[in-house]
Design a protein around this nucleic acid. Structure first.
Lengths: 177, 177
DNA sequence: CGCGTATAGTTGAAGGCTAAAGTAATTTGG
DNA sequence: CCAAATTACTTTAGCCTTCAACTATACGCG
């Protein structure tokens, strides 16, 4: 239900606003993209859960924190950087806090804001398991792509991402306070 | 925690098995792919839930059924076609059954097997809302890509998908019975 | 100032997903 | 031809996510 329907059903000339069905090429790409969005997180999560006790999303949150100034970001910024809602992030940070990998701090400048800080243990845990994760990413993704393909996909994916998340390119890097 | 670490930490020549960190190009592509896998399903689901009362995954299941022989597939085949576990599919089909969009049928040939059948109402519902969904897919994805980009991405995504789901290309089309 | 609105974040309930275990039928291998 | 292993599917429980509601602070402006 994505490509064009049987010819008989297109007949009615008077019909307004024919849906712009996907071409065969588009449909093929679409099926593949859907397949990847469905399967890739699960594949990576299997390795992460087994080796590091982390969700793919949790790993990503820790990684985004590790690259921030002073390993600290406001919840809102961290949500933007990890492509999540504030609510989802809040729940996850609560979990990570219980593990001792992240700590919440009040922001002195803006008393509405909360900073999430990656703890030493959190950083150590990430550092310990990053190589295994990167290896898995390589095995599943980059080992089957050559440099030109990487460049081409990066370009296309960048366009789509800019479309679905216009705010992402404007993400600040700092924390508050 | 995906690109190379600061130079000081690479110093130890004797260190075995340096992780194969991502190059800047790879890292850029990776961040974009992760962003899309996190955000795209949600974006499409917003439209689908509002207009059709369907999850992205539910829509996909109905779509895969609609294209099968007699709009019927065994649960196992349907799971393969919709990139899901049998368990997830079973839950979803139960839900779709309650809505009257899908019906389960025993398979006469193999009494372990169950066929999922798209009902008339299910097909009508899909047909009614497919144009809106396709429009959304176009807006979010294909309107920002030219034909060459579509071909290039299709190729790259195909390689990755083949890697993470070797069984997907061998999916049969028929139902049992 | 003070009112309305926007921003920042948390929480709780409802529902979906995963993993593991359970049932049942079929195939395989001795 | 029977036991063991495999395949097909369902179910239960627990975790995760989403959605809506709520608190609290900051900003805009008449």
């Amino acid at each position: 239900m994505l490509g064009s329907p049987p010819a008989e059903r297109i007949g009615a000339v008077s019909e307004m606003k024919q849906p712009r069905w996907l071409t065969p090429n588009e449909r093929e790409m679409w099926m593949r993209l859907v397949g990847i969005t469905f399967l890739l997180p699960g594949v990576l999560e299997t390795q992460l859960k087994r080796d590091a006790g982390l969700t793919f999303f949790e790993y990503h949150v820790l990684a985004m924190l590790s690259e921030a100034d002073e390993r600290t970001r406001s919840m809102s910024d961290l949500a933007r950087w990890s492509n999540s809602s504030l609510s989802r992030l809040s729940h996850v940070v609560t979990r990570l806090e219980k593990q001792g990998w992240v700590r919440r701090e009040a922001c002195p400048d803006d008393r509405r804001a909360t900073n999430a800080v990656l703890t030493e243990e959190g950083f150590a845990h990430l550092e310990a398991h990053a190589p295994g994760h990167v290896d898995e990413v390589r095995r599943q993704v980059f080992d089957v792509l050559d440099q030109d393909q990487v460049r081409a996909m990066s370009e296309g994916l960048g366009s789509v991402l800019a479309q679905i998340d216009p705010g992402s390119s404007a993400a600040p890097n700092g924390h508050c306070g």
